[in-house]
Design a protein around this nucleic acid. Structure first.
Length: 280
DNA sequence: GTTTAACCCTGCACGC
DNA sequence: TGCGTGCAGGGTTAAA
């Protein structure tokens, strides 16, 4: 789950979970459930900080969601690649690999399931957030209004890294993963292996604009739901952006712009998809 | 400074 | 049919 999916989830949570009060919290009895709340030694340590609390705000930092509560604590959630929230009720059976169930005083519940358990959730005090290592290093959000193409260009020349890796580096710019880094680079007409300090100012502007456009569009289409990655929104509905993808997963298919077959290469263990004609 | 690989995990596609 | 293998990926970490 990358920035657009996390943002869609955040908006859904803001609409449907903020304002609700926790009646019960349950961490399921499995090894992987404990993996999900790995920061807490015991289930009770986690659940005690949720029960009786009301959610007051849903915030996003990079690919993290922060659910603030009325006592100043925060439920921090990272979805990894297969983590999901879904709203439910007692009558709806729990999905496979459900690790945490939070029920509300107002009725209904919130389930967290995650087959591959790369996801994580934990509760911390809001004023301790600055001490959480993963959150400290999250770079500026590409959709933040303080993020200007000027500042972006300056940061790019400070480094000499292949563009794909740099875009996926959460310490450099937050929110992009394997799918959207490829889509952004295609939108900018840049190859995955261009070095960041080799970009002209025109290319920097193109990249900046492509980043805004791709991410905003992906949010508008409510995220990308691939066959092998069943991302769904809070209400279990898939996204639509997979139909708009220009390069990701399209190996051998004609480029939507120039008809040249899309290529895939391995770069540091990840697939990079690109059009050899449109990107240079 | 930058890059690579391994690790955590399950589901699925593939070949035999 | 059923099994083993390889791959997918976010983020961290150790090693090159």
């Amino acid at each position: 789950m990358e920035l657009p999916e996390v943002e869609v989830m955040r908006r859904d949570l803001e609409k449907d979970v903020v304002g609700r009060k926790v009646a019960t919290a349950d961490v399921r009895a499995s090894r992987n459930a404990m993996r999900v709340i790995r920061r807490h030694g015991k289930r009770k340590e986690f659940t005690d900080r949720l029960v009786g609390r009301k959610f007051t705000k849903a915030e996003r930092r990079g690919k993290y969601v922060l659910l603030h509560m009325d006592d100043g604590d925060v439920l921090v959630v990272h979805f990894g690649m297969s983590g999901q929230f879904v709203r439910g009720t007692k009558r709806v059976p729990l999905p496979q690999h459900t690790h945490v169930v939070i029920t509300f005083v107002q009725g209904g519940d919130l389930r967290f399931f995650d087959p591959r358990t790369f996801g994580e959730m934990f509760v911390t005090a809001a004023d301790e957030l600055g001490k959480v290592r993963e959150l400290q290093h999250i770079a500026i959000d590409p959709l933040d209004h303080v993020f200007t193409w000027n500042a972006f260009g300056g940061a790019l020349t400070q480094r000499a890294t292949k563009m794909k890796q740099l875009l996926m580096d959460q310490k450099f710019v937050s929110g992009l993963g394997n799918i959207y880094s490829d889509e952004v680079l295609f939108g900018a007409g840049l190859r995955y292996d261009r070095l960041s300090d080799s970009l002209s100012s025109q290319e920097v502007r193109r990249l900046y604009r492509a980043m805004q456009e791709v991410l905003q569009e992906a949010i508008r289409f409510r995220g990308t739901t691939l066959d092998d990655d069943a991302y769904m929104d809070l209400f279990g509905k898939p996204g639509e952006f997979q139909n708009e993808l220009k390069v990701y997963g399209r190996t051998g298919l004609p480029c939507r712009r120039c008809r040249t077959p899309i290529q895939a290469v391995k770069i540091s263990g990840r697939n990079a998809f690109f059009c050899p004609q449109c990107q240079s």
